[in-house]
Every structure is written in structure tokens, then in C-alpha cells.
Nucleic acid binder design. Structure first.
Length: 279
DNA sequence: GAATAGGAGACCT
DNA sequence: AGGTCTCCTATTC
């Protein structure tokens, strides 16, 4: 610790700029008015060049450098958490180079869902992860003039975060408080996941999913599905069932009534369910 | 009209 | 065999 060299860097990125993908998943009121309907934002944090005219004192430069490194660490942690979540939900590997065309399509569908994009996955059909990784930003734009640059940046950040994770010590040094099933699912990427686990994983990540499913009373395990179609689509993506809908998903939930895993709360309300054994 | 409830058969691991 | 998925009818909100 302490040595500036020990801080992570973005190997795949332009050394002068740290691109931060900041989505406004909470509080989208402002973004709702954007003509494209997406709310992905890029922010460039420029490091001042050594000896550049704008550089002030050495101390100021060091403080700025340290600030940037701290921001970078925070961003990497955040990106890694998002990568982890996406991989669990989609049942794909973290390494885009290993993706087949199906995994690429899943990833693109994911980005569509997360950022409310129109269908972009159809524009990248038949491409493997390796194809995607070898494409330039211009090539991304050839596939999608509107969102190519965003997708390129997204993949770049994803790969950079994953690349930095590999040689370093585990990022997640927190005790596993609320991630038992999520970690189990993530540790065995090809292991089938139960619907109740999937729902709980979504509920445990309110930052990402509170708009489609959220706790009404976490202690009692009562939750509400806010966007039934969205939750069903996510479940369908996870299980490779493109025809999944809320009708079928809810039927599967109802199978849990007999098994004592999920039930309707005492006061039954539409789209509200309760885990029999709360987290 | 959408959600709820549950039967029944198919499918997959 | 267990855990859905799919399709279905009937009922409730």
C-alpha cells in the first residue's frame, strides 16, 4: 500500500483519460427526457501531462494524481460488481474473448435492458466475443451508427476491469453478508439456478433492479414485482428461454407454494410475494 | 384486462 | 425424479 504503482490502472485505455461509465439507474427522471431514451454517460477525467503548462505545484499534482487513483479504484470496484452481476444473471463468462455468438447476443440484450436501448443485438449477429474484441470503435459504429461508440466503450471498460481483477488480490474483501446464494450461483457458472434464488439475487441488488423488483419488507421477505415483463425477460435470458413471460414465471412461483419456499403474504396483493424463510 | 390459482403434460438434467 | 416450461381453464382484482 502507499506506493502509487500499487494502484490499478486501465491497461486497455488511453493513458490520458479515464472513461467512467456512469449510468443513472437510480433517479432517471432527468434522463427520461433524453431523445434517445438511454441514460449512459461518459465522463472523461484528464490527467495533466507532466510538465504541461497547466501543472501547478508538485504537491498539487500529487494530490490530483491521488484523487484520480481513488476515483479509479472506486470505479473499478463498481464496474466489477456490475460485471459480476451481469455474468450471474446471464450465465456467461467474464472474459469476452471466450464468448460464442450466443453469449455476445446475451451481453447485448443485457446492455439493451440496462440502458433502455432499442434493439441493437440484431445488428451484431453472428459475431463471437473474439470478433467483438478485435473490432475498432469505427467498426462498432459501422454496425450501429447511434450506439456503436457506447457499446465499444462498454466492452472496453468491461474488459479492462476484468483484466485488472485477474492479477490482483480479490477485490471483494467484505464478509459475505448478503450474498450466499449469489456467490454459490456465481462460483458455478454452468450450474442451474432456481427461480427463487434468481429473484433473491435481483432483490439483493436494488441498485440495479429496484425498478423491476424490490423489497416491501425485507425482514419478512415480502417483495413486489414492479415490472413483471422485465423480470420475466431477465429470467428468460438467464434460462435461455426467449418465450418466457410473466404468466409462465408466475406459474413457476406458484409451484413454490406447495414446497414452502414462496407464498402470498397474509394480505394478498397483486404482484406481491413473500419468501417463507426470509434472508 | 391483467393477475391469480392450479391441473396436466412435456421437457431437460 | 425434481424443477421447471408450456398451455390451459376458471376465477378474482
Amino acid at each position: 500500500m502507499g506506493s502509487p504503482d500499487s494502484h490499478p490502472t486501465f491497461p486497455n485505455m488511453d493513458s490520458r483519460a479515464l472513461y467512467v461509465v456512469a449510468d443513472h439507474r437510480q433517479g432517471t427522471a432527468a434522463g427520461a427526457g433524453s431523445p434517445q431514451g438511454h441514460n449512459l454517460h461518459y465522463m472523461q477525467v484528464h490527467k495533466s501531462q507532466p510538465g504541461s503548462p497547466s501543472s501547478c505545484s508538485l504537491l498539487e499534482g500529487q494530490v490530483e494524481e491521488r484523487c484520480l487513483e481513488q476515483i479509479q479504484s472506486l470505479v473499478v470496484g463498481e464496474v466489477l460488481r456490475d460485471v459480476d452481476t451481469a455474468c450471474k444473471m446471464l450465465n456467461i463468462s467474464q472474459e469476452p474473448l471466450s464468448w460464442g455468438w450466443l453469449q455476445v447476443q446475451k451481453w447485448l440484450l443485457w446492455i439493451e435492458h440496462m440502458y433502455h436501448l432499442p434493439r441493437v443485438s440484431a445488428l451484431f449477429q453472428g459475431l463471437s466475443g473474439r470478433d467483438l474484441c478485435s473490432m475498432s470503435e469505427a467498426q462498432f459504429r459501422q454496425h450501429s451508427a447511434q450506439f456503436g461508440d457506447m457499446l465499444y466503450a462498454h466492452l472496453d471498460i468491461w474488459r479492462s476491469a476484468v483484466a485488472m481483477k485477474a492479477p490482483c488480490a480479490p477485490v471483494d474483501d467484505k464478509p459475505a453478508v448478503e450474498s450466499s446464494s449469489a456467490d454459490i450461483a456465481g462460483s458455478f457458472p454452468n450450474q442451474p439456478i432456481h427461480l427463487w434464488q434468481f429473484l433473491r439475487d435481483l432483490l439483493l441488488r436494488p441498485h440495479n433492479y429496484s425498478r423491476c423488483i424490490r423489497w416491501l419488507n425485507k425482514e419478512k421477505g415480502i417483495f413486489k414485482i414492479e415490472d413483471s415483463a422485465h423480470v420475466a425477460r431477465l429470467w428468460g435470458m438467464r434460462k435461455n428461454r426467449p418465450a418466457m413471460n410473466y404468466d409462465k414465471l408466475s406459474r413457476s412461483i406458484r409451484q413454490y407454494y406447495k414446497k414452502g419456499i414462496i407464498r402470498k403474504p397474509e394480505v394478498s396483493r397483486r404482484l406481491v410475494y413473500q419468501f417463507v424463510n426470509p434472508v
